[in-house]
Design a protein around this nucleic acid. Structure first.
Lengths: 274, 274
DNA sequence: CGTTGACTTGACGGAAGTCAAAAGGTGTGG
DNA sequence: CCACACCTTTTGACTTCCGTCAAGTCAACG
């Protein structure tokens, strides 16, 4: 199986065959599958391992006293759920499964070893948490400065890129596992209004959403509609970093692996070229 | 001068005299003072040192094409501005001075040395970035699930605690350096409506805001008004961690230093006891 | 074929945005 | 020390985007 974590981190750096092996080794730990609507990790909990999403979709969520729920982040395959366990007492929010979701449970000390032994992987993991913060900031901009239609299209643009990075898109289609109610929880609006906005985006010929698959009909136009600018994802792998690791052996797809990865990177960037 | 970074990090752990000295040493690096309205760090920039706020107030902000500005985070004394420089290519947002602000410029490699040499300080810095993320998430909840009056009072509750941590409050008063327009940029509303909500909070007898000083007249009530729950700040220093460092020498205030720090910690927690 | 959950549609109300103008501070220079 | 400019705060009238409530459609599934 492809390693979504590796695919994601390779947006930042290139790994040596040994580093890739180390990352692949992480997938050998026990997995846990959670049904839609149930919690992957609960607020107040403190567990000894880190959850890495392999398939499905997770969401960081807080439920307020009045029963209202706010989704603060979405976790796609390749995302780490709870790096905070290293230092924090307990989770300050829930992580819910928005669809049947499978995670690997990586023991805390395995990550810690990784962090001490490979500075390249360490940097990449650091990059990962930094971009997670950048996504949080962008969501604040979303809620503060964009109207309903923009918020929804912005989220769709972001998801398209993030799914593409882990190779979960076919052209401009990808699994859109949120119900409209959950989408409402994520964008801070009502399900009714979410529905109206989706209709509108459909009417504008920007998207097609049927079943649980979203097809972006005109990425350029959708991006413009959302006032989307992907720079906050910090995707561009630099020439300098590329040179640091001069040779790269084939990966999952053996001989053609390198080509595949390059393709992904280029497609991701080019989809929303400014 | 008191070290606001130390004061903040001691919410998480206790330091040995040596560790405190290392932290104090950071303040000896050159400082930079930025006038209100000017940038401390600009989007796209990549500098070789890290900014630590000593006095004043900074704000992470993005300016959209239409001139609208969104403030995504506020930086009070003791906050680090740009830890991302370690791994990211460039800043994806500006850091603006909301008032005359003084920062120390700590060379990147000094921080890196710190991270490799003292695991206690490393953990504390890690805690700091984790709580920064938690604050971002809470701001998303704010924008998504709270109405105008709640958003403003929530921000005031948060600021009261954060200023108290670094010893910048007198009772329940603290410097409130944002104009109503800037407050509007932070809460995602219009200056006019911010004004109306402030009037309302005044009328309800919750706050007093004159000049640049905010006095919280009834912390309990304001907290309730904002549906505020400080647990996302992860302030509670555990008994376990307290035992790890059994003795603590006096600090800035020499003999009475320990007592002072304890006081701060207790006051911070007790102010908003659940 | 009835039940359930997700999506859709319409009518109405309200919180917050918009526009505009006045009032209150504050600093600077004459 | 006044006068002026400038910024911030305040207030009022009007508009609009989105929330609310409620009913209705549709597909999936036992």
């Amino acid at each position: 199986m492809a390693n979504p974590l590796t695919m994601k981190l390779e947006q930042f750096t290139r790994f040596t065959p040994e580093e890739r092996q180390r990352l692949d080794h992480l997938l050998t730990y026990p997995t846990k599958t959670v049904q839609r609507g149930r919690a992957i990790v609960r607020e107040g909990q403190k567990v000894g391992h880190i959850h890495l999403v392999l398939t499905g979709l997770g969401a960081r969520a807080k439920t307020l006293r009045n029963g209202e729920r706010q989704i603060m982040a979405l976790l796609v395959p390749g995302d780490l759920c709870d790096v905070e366990v290293f230092v924090l007492q307990a989770m300050d929010h829930d992580i819910m499964a928005m669809a049947e979701t499978t995670c690997v449970l990586i023991p805390e000390k395995v990550i810690q070893e990784l962090l001490t032994e490979s500075s390249n992987i360490t940097k990449a993991l650091w990059w990962s948490t930094m971009t997670d913060s950048a996504v949080l900031r962008e969501w604040i901009v979303d809620h503060g400065s964009r109207d309903a239609a923009e918020r929804i299209s912005h989220l769709m643009c972001e998801m398209l890129i993030r799914y593409r990075i882990v190779g979960a898109t076919t052209d401009d289609s990808f699994p859109f596992l949120l119900t409209q109610e959950e989408l409402a929880d994520a964008t801070g609006m009502t399900p009714v209004h979410v529905n109206r906005m989706i209709q509108q985006l459909r009417a504008e010929g920007l998207i097609e959403l049927r079943g649980k698959v979203l097809t972006v009909l005109d990425p350029q136009a959708l991006q413009q509609r959302a006032r989307y600018d992907s720079s906050y994802l910090h995707l561009t792998r630099t020439e300098q970093r590329d040179r640091e690791v001069s040779t790269r052996a084939g990966d999952l797809v053996s001989a053609t692996g390198q080509g595949v990865m390059r393709d992904v990177g280029e497609r991701v960037v080019s989809a929303f070229a400014r």
